[in-house]
């Protein structure tokens, strides 16, 4: 039976209690749902001196809709399974929901939080790709105040985010988008638990004009969440040029043959997913 190493445990109910406590320890571990944190503890991949349970912080368990700013804020403690019933019905939320509903199974989604999904930095995580595609920001709190970082710039390398010790993800915010088409696809090898490629795309098309188009990609083939700039394209008949750009993007990424597959296999997976996404968002 796998048992975690020893640690102190604190349960926090207020954000300022978090800031007061986190500095007292040298290697604190934040835990929200615990689906991955507990697994990592059991496998002794991490050995924190304290586990800080933030799931009781009500300030992080809110969804705010600011009509004036046309903005949504999803608190980091919100569970993935809850998103279905609380997200607004705009296109950005639709894409985020598509990603959230593909996470694990109902139990994992009932336990797993938005914050845990965004902060782990596993290239196989679903939300970061959709959030990066819609241009969402991570809202990060610390004793010093609040800073926002585009989700697409949150990831340094697999399992390494830009969050520093003492910082906590308060939530993610994004602008609501209307009249867009969305696409979310991933390729994974279930029995190996390998998320080879994940692609999220969103586009607004009027007639043959592309008013706005965004895409992000992640997965083990690419190692982290990356946003792809497609702003230069304005007509749907430029589809071949778009695909050429995606081809170039994939071919310029440094990849290696490893346990997630050969370079040829990874490139094929990414391009197939990207082309599928483009076809889905630009189709009449």
């Amino acid at each position: 039976m796998k048992a975690p190493p020893s640690f102190d445990f604190i349960r926090i109910n207020k954000l300022n209690e978090f800031y007061e406590n986190v500095d007292r320890y040298s290697s604190p571990l934040i835990i929200s749902g615990g689906t991955v944190a507990v697994l990592m503890l059991k496998n002794r991949v991490i050995r924190p001196d304290v586990v800080i349970d933030i799931s009781g912080i009500e300030e992080l368990n809110v969804l705010k809709k600011d009509k004036e700013k046309n903005e949504v804020f999803i608190g980091s403690n919100i569970k993935l399974h809850e998103l279905k019933s609380i997200l607004p019905d705009d296109s950005a939320s639709e894409l985020i929901l598509k990603a959230a509903t593909t996470v694990g199974d109902i139990a994992i989604r009932s336990m797993g939080s938005v914050g845990g999904n965004v902060c782990l930095g596993d290239p196989g995580n679903d939300l970061p790709v959709a959030l990066a595609a819609v241009g969402a920001n991570a809202v990060v709190g610390s004793r010093e105040g609040i800073r926002t970082v585009p989700v697409s710039e949150c990831y340094v390398k697999p399992f390494k985010t830009v969050l520093k010790k003492g910082e906590i993800l308060l939530g993610v915010s994004y602008k609501m988008l209307y009249g867009y088409r969305t696409s979310y696809n991933k390729f994974f090898i279930n029995f190996l638990d390998h998320y080879v490629g994940i692609v999220a795309a969103i586009a607004k098309v009027e007639g043959i004009s592309i008013k706005d188009m965004r895409m992000a990609v992640s997965g083990e083939a690419i190692g982290t969440t990356v946003k792809i700039d497609l702003a230069e394209f304005s007509k749907i008949d430029e589809i071949n040029a778009i695909k050429d750009k995606l081809n170039k993007f994939v071919n310029e990424r440094s990849m290696s043959d490893d346990r997630f597959g050969t370079v040829k296999f990874k490139k094929k997976v990414l391009l197939t997913l990207m082309f599928q996404a483009i076809d889905e968002v630009l189709k009449a």
Binding site: P4, G34, V38, L39, V51, H81, I106, A107, I108, M111
Partner: peptide, 10 residues
């Protein structure tokens, strides 16, 4: 009332 996997929780 929500299903959870108790091997993944403290």
């Amino acid at each position: 009332g929500k299903p959870v996997k108790s091997c993944l929780m403290l």
